[in-house]
Amino acid sequence: MTLHNEDLTAARHAVEHLFGKCVLTFQAYENLLKAIISEHRLSAHMADIEDIRADRAAKTRQKTMGALMSEMIGSFIVPEGKERQCEDREDAPSVAFNFQLSFTAEEFARVEAEHRELVVLRNSLVHHFLEQHNLRSVDGCLVAQQTLTSALDRVTRAHKELRCWAHEMVTARKVLADYIQSPELDDFFVHGRMPWHIVTITHALREAAMELASGDWAPVDTAISWIEERYPEEQPKDYGCKTWRQVIHESKHFDLQVRKVDGRRKAWYRPRNRSAASG
């Protein structure tokens, strides 16, 4: 074997090694993408949960990488303000969850572009690599190695990012599972006691008070307007209350007082410290 042939053989081996690493990493990325798509949301009757999950996983396994990407963008990955609520079911005992990651408009554009480009890169690699590169020369193999090194770097970074997102989803599901098994939820279903310390409306009231308080106290009517703008889905009736003042009173997480301002009675509130609220 001549020196040229030895160099070409070594160069081709390097190309094949990199090509194999790229394909395997793309497959790992695609498999993780399938797992996220099949598990990030669910709405089913309690008796049908396992069947629905199995059916969704089976259908997801049949989808192309392009179809998976289209489902991830806008369903799992969303821009801020475009989050979707779970579908309510009222005909039978059911469970529904929808895990999403929201990003600023700029970051969402970056994420969408980088991950959608992976579909084009993967298709080009699998279907057109030999057409695009001359592996019959050392120089051609070196160019191919550069292309593969760049592709491997991109898919590796994207796979790492996807793993972080999957970890956040798994963590959130564990929190949800722990909550479902918690004494607070059992107390809610058995005795009808609202777990005020973890519901969104309490968080919204506390957040509004921190934003609007003057001398520790915040006006209730101003806080209501602030919450309605940022948490439009939060309503007292969903928590068994007729008014916001009733929510503030029933939660036992806030102090409430009525003052006269310019001759008119006006309600003010402030968060209690955690030890007082839990008592």
Rank of each mutant, 00 (worst) to 15 (best):
A218P: 12
E112K: 11
P219E: 13
E71K: 09
V119S: 00
T171W: 11
L212I: 10
V15N: 00
T2L: 12
R56N: 15
H4Y: 13
T9M: 11
M210V: 15
C141I: 04
S225C: 09
I52Q: 14
D88L: 15
F189G: 10
Y179G: 10
V199E: 07
P236C: 01
R245S: 12
A267P: 13
P232M: 07
H191Y: 10
Y231Q: 07
S251T: 01
P79D: 02
G192V: 06
Q246I: 01
S225K: 11
A277S: 11
N5W: 03
A105Q: 10
P93T: 02
Y231V: 03
F19D: 04
V143A: 11
F108S: 02
R259Q: 14
T243A: 04
V199H: 10
L3Q: 14
A96Y: 10
H159P: 01
T202P: 09
P93W: 02
A35S: 12
G192F: 09
V155F: 00
D187K: 14
C86V: 13
H17F: 12
A276R: 15
C141E: 05
H191A: 12
A144H: 06
H115I: 08
G215S: 10
V126A: 07
G215D: 10
R56I: 14
L8S: 06
D238P: 09
D51R: 11
E250D: 13
L8R: 03
A58F: 09
F188A: 07
S150N: 09
N273C: 13
Y269I: 05
R163M: 13
V15L: 01
Q132C: 05
E250G: 02
H203G: 08
V170R: 15
K237C: 14
R12S: 02
H115Q: 03
D255R: 06
P93D: 04
I224Q: 08
G263M: 00
A47G: 11
P219C: 09
Y269C: 07
P93F: 00
